[in-house]
Design a protein around this nucleic acid. Structure first.
Lengths: 203, 203
DNA sequence: ATATTTACTAAACTATGTTCAGTAAATAAT
DNA sequence: ATTATTTACTGAACATAGTTTAGTAAATAT
């Protein structure tokens, strides 16, 4: 009965198979069209099998969300190399926006879709976004400390910055800015980042 | 055969019955849970009947969206009475934010949900948000003209303002800001509006 | 009185998430 | 080695959706 760890390992592997099948499908065809049956087909198991590894569809989406936040956080690690807080803030914005526009479906899953948020009890808190948000908080903190941002409420400044970036991205992702042609979106997003940094920096 | 207008009138009335039933349901129970069958039950017709008046579910959502944008635009009319552009900008933000937080489900339908956007061909443009956006554009234009906002790109400034307001609201609506307790959301939103106005005004 | 159009519906069709009851292989116990 | 049990899996079914179809009965037109 020493094979108990192997069992666990196998189980983990199967979970990852399911997740990567799901990811493959939704990257290819968007999110609305992911079905348990198609995931099962992709991994060549029956759809009932999927439920042996995940409680429900929302849990799968939640797991993918977790991967997304890990990826975003990883991308942010390069910010450690940037010393000047103002530059750091801009670089952080750029990373966030690039991530969003390069992974629209994943971003949607992380920040917009409701389904994955139903994977855990309402009682407990959703913490996946925390680490990335703390990176921003720290940068804003440094900007305030060194006088690049003058404010008596860094929390509000921080949330505003996030809201602005999230706002523009989600307007595009959910197709509410049709006055701006698709091929201009990249430019506009860069323009907004410039504008934001310029407006918020006091020094 | 002079009753052709009455027919048309009846048809319109039925459409409105359906819409108000739909609205009632989704205001009460949120959006995910609206079904054609429940709408039909509410108006005491069969669900097939609904399809005699609307092409599909998305069309119903689109029609409700249209009502929402009408309501938002109406609320904005009081801005005509405000003469100072800077005050006007703040008042506009306040109206937008109040509308959003008082009608979260409707706001979601208007600015976040994808379903209603599939009600028309991709070829044609989505114009429902235009009038309200133009109100903002004009206000920003006035602010720039009178030196309250200094920028070489009013379009970007305008979009940024909208993005910031939309961003914070949608973060709350889609439950991504759990670090801020529910009962603090109102305060935070006011704080963000203050912060935004303070940051963007140059005079 | 007959034909036609209109307004409506019951029932079915097609997904899709999810569960259930059973099977066959792997493992454990004797 | 044989039997018992657990494990991993699946086909079929259930429930709920959106949507369509084929038909009916009343209103209207001829």
């Amino acid at each position: 009965m020493g094979s108990i760890e192997r069992k666990e390992r196998d189980k983990q592997e199967m979970k990852e198979m399911i997740l990567s099948a799901a990811k493959k499908l939704f990257l290819k065809e968007g999110f609305e069209h992911i079905t348990i049956r198609r995931i099962a087909e992709e991994i060549e198991y029956s759809s009932a099998t999927v439920y042996l590894y995940f409680k429900d569809k929302d849990s799968i989406l939640y797991a993918l969300q977790a991967q997304g936040f890990q990826e975003l956080f990883n991308r942010m690690k390069v910010l450690d190399a940037v010393k000047n807080p103002a530059e750091k803030l801009r670089a952080c914005g750029k990373i966030y926006l690039d991530f969003a526009m390069e992974n629209k479906e994943l971003y949607d899953l992380m920040f917009i879709m409701m389904a994955p948020m139903n994977a855990f009890e309402c009682a407990e808190e959703w913490k996946l976004g925390r680490p990335s948000y703390e990176v921003l908080q720290n940068i804003v903190g440094e900007c305030v400390a060194e006088g690049y941002i003058k404010t008596d409420n860094p929390q509000i400044a921080c949330l505003s910055l996030w809201a602005l970036m999230h706002g523009v991205v989600s307007i595009f992702i959910r197709n509410r800015a049709q006055m701006i042609p698709q091929d201009q979106q990249g430019n506009v997003i860069n323009g907004i980042l410039d504008f934001t940094i310029k407006e918020i920096l006091d020094k």
